[in-house]
Simulated assay, not measured.
Amino acid sequence: MKLYEIAAFLGCSEIKDSIEITGMNTLRDASEGEISFLSDSKYEKELFDTKASAVILPASKIHLLPFGVVALTSDEPYMLVAILSKQFAKPVQSSTVSPVIGEGSCIYPTAHIENGATIGKNCTIMSGVYIGSEAVVGDDVILYPNVSVYRDCKIGNRVMIHAGSVIGSDGFGYAHTKLGEHVKLYQNGNVIIEDDVEIGANTTVDCAVFGSTIIKQGSKIDNLVQIGHNCIVGEYSILVSQSGLAGSTTLGRNVVMGGQSATAGHLSIAPFTTLAARSGVTKSIVTKGVYSGFPLMEHKIWLKMQAKLAKILES
Rank of each mutant, 00 (worst) to 15 (best):
K2I: 10
Y4P: 08
I6Q: 03
I6P: 01
A7Q: 01
L10N: 07
C12Y: 01
I21E: 05
M24C: 11
T26A: 09
T26P: 04
E34L: 10
E34H: 14
L38E: 00
S39E: 13
L47A: 11
F48V: 14
T50I: 10
A52I: 03
S53Y: 10
A54L: 05
A54G: 06
L64R: 14
T73W: 10
S74N: 04
M79T: 13
A82E: 02
S85Q: 04
S85Y: 00
Q87S: 10
P99K: 01
P99T: 05
S105I: 02
I107K: 07
P109I: 07
A111C: 02
I113E: 01
E114R: 05
C123E: 07
G128S: 01
Y130W: 12
Y130C: 04
A135D: 07
V137W: 02
D139R: 12
I142V: 14
N146K: 08
V149T: 02
D152Y: 06
K154Y: 07
R158T: 05
V159F: 00
M160P: 06
S165K: 14
I167G: 00
G171P: 09
T177S: 13
K184T: 06
N188W: 04
N190I: 09
N190S: 15
I193Q: 10
E194P: 05
D195W: 06
D196R: 13
G200D: 03
G200N: 03
T203C: 03
T204Q: 11
V205P: 06
I214K: 05
I214L: 11
Q217M: 13
Q217V: 13
G218E: 07
D222M: 15
N223S: 02
C231K: 05
S237I: 05
Q242A: 15
G244N: 05
T249I: 10
G252S: 09
V255M: 04
S261D: 08
T263Q: 02
G265T: 00
H266L: 07
H266K: 08
S268P: 15
I269G: 08
A270Y: 02
F272R: 13
G280S: 07
V281S: 01
I285E: 10
S292E: 09
F294R: 04
M297S: 12
I301C: 01
I301H: 13
W302F: 15
L309F: 00
A310L: 07
K311T: 06
S315G: 14
